[in-house]
Write a protein that binds this DNA or RNA. Sequence first.
RNA 1: GCUCCCAUCGUCCAGCGGCCUAGGACUCCGCCCUUUCAAGGCGGCAACGCGGGUUCGAAUCCCGUUGGGAGUACCA
Length: 487
Amino acid sequence: MVRARFCPSPTGTPHVGLIRTALFNWAFARHNGGKLVFRIEDTDAARDSQESYEQLLDALRWLGLDWDEGPEAGGEHGPYRQSERREIYADIAARLLAAGELYEAFSTNDEVEARHKAAGRDPKLGYDNFDRDLTDEQRAAYRAEGRVPVLRLRMPATDLGWTDLVRGDINFPAGSVPDPVLVRANGEPLYTLTNPVDDALMRITHVLRGEDLLPSTPRQLALYAALRRIGVTDFTPEFGHLPYVLGEGNKKLSKRDPQSNLFNYRDRGFIPEGLLNYLALLGWSIADDRDIFGVDELVAAFELGKVSANPARFDLKKAESINATHVRALPVGEFVTRVTPYLVADGVLPAEPGDELLTRLNAIAPLVQERVTVLSEASAMVRFLFVADADFVPEEDAAAKNLGETAKPVLTAAIAALEVLPSWTTEGIEQALKEALVDGLGLKPRKAFAPVRVAVTGRTVSPPLYESMELLGRDVSLGRLRRALNG
RNA sequence: GCUCCCAUCGUCCAGCGGCCUAGGACUCCGCCCUUUCAAGGCGGCAACGCGGGUUCGAAUCCCGUUGGGAGUACCA
């Protein structure tokens, strides 16, 4: 039985790299019919926040990434917040210490550095394992000085290696990893202890995490060996290190970067289907000639062997393109449901739109659906249909380019033709405008329709012109054309 | 410094010894369709970092080198 896990620290806003890791763990668990454990690593009170914790849950729920054990889901290995597991860590640390796997260390960083220098070694080498074999008398002497020890793990004098699920064989030579601190002087357990202990206790079989954690694997391997010796667990999980998600340039996407903020994408109107599809492409592929797929297809096809080892850069253009494809694939009714909150937020629709507005929205929706890449773009595109006529103002750039002097004859001719149009229908409008502008004025269609489009919809990119005018009605359409003409 | 990871078009991914005059997608540029805006179709630009091996044969394996990245905390 596969048991994967996702175990973020609730610091800051969820970012795309973190979510990509969650997605891969989720897809891996689901593909293998296993379980996904969701654990919160909140042992650093100074940096963790309840708000961040809630955002994490919000993010996963929005994307539809569910978990089998964890906060609000429960499970037999709980609690699933490390802040509620203090006694467990204290107990295991005590057992490890009693078994000699851990030892008390009193050295300060300055002392370690000084010893390196005195011995002619590189002072940046890190902890020198000086306190490993202190006698009882020496420890008592340090305590008498008022020193309080940290607890360090005794690393083995052997190479530490494993077969990484995405990178193959990796080996750290003996002696290259100093004895790490597992418990602070004040008794608080560190990530170095809590993460492997919880994975062991929660019977995690596969650890899939970002490649930034790869260097911490050897010491975790050593800890696992110790945990096995004291009977806490009877196996060591497999490890797979997923490639970074980088931002523009070659920089790791930092938490501060707005480009990394997951909610930024939700606010702009990415839909879960689109964002998930794009994120899955960052380090994985479903086939050599295909990159549009749904989560069901992702789950069916997801295999770690196809995960790439090299870092991926987040490409907003491609993300948008993939999102647009998913938006277009939505049933129209679903598109309306999803886009409405954005229209309301942008003041295009009232919170409780009446029947007339809803009818309009439903009429324009299919036309807008294939013209947006993200949902928030719909607001500017349909605003012309919903604003009070008095408040309608064409966008500045569009007006400057398309409503200047050269547009006057076009607008005049359009008004003249439309005023006498017997029936106000899409077909009628189309025919009248073509006769008046293309045939009558001898203009190229591009030139002929741009001023009319901007005058009526306020933008150069809009829903189809004739349909838009029909929906707007004759009076409003003509009114806008006249206003554009006169001023 | 030390340890580890990575290396194919601008970007992501395919390629796991011959099917590669290297394929798909995004971007960009043309053209077609539509006498509107999109969408769609077709086409184009564009890459195996370098040097050694191994092999009949290397983008694919090995070594080196260069470049990029990470870790080196009483953060996670």
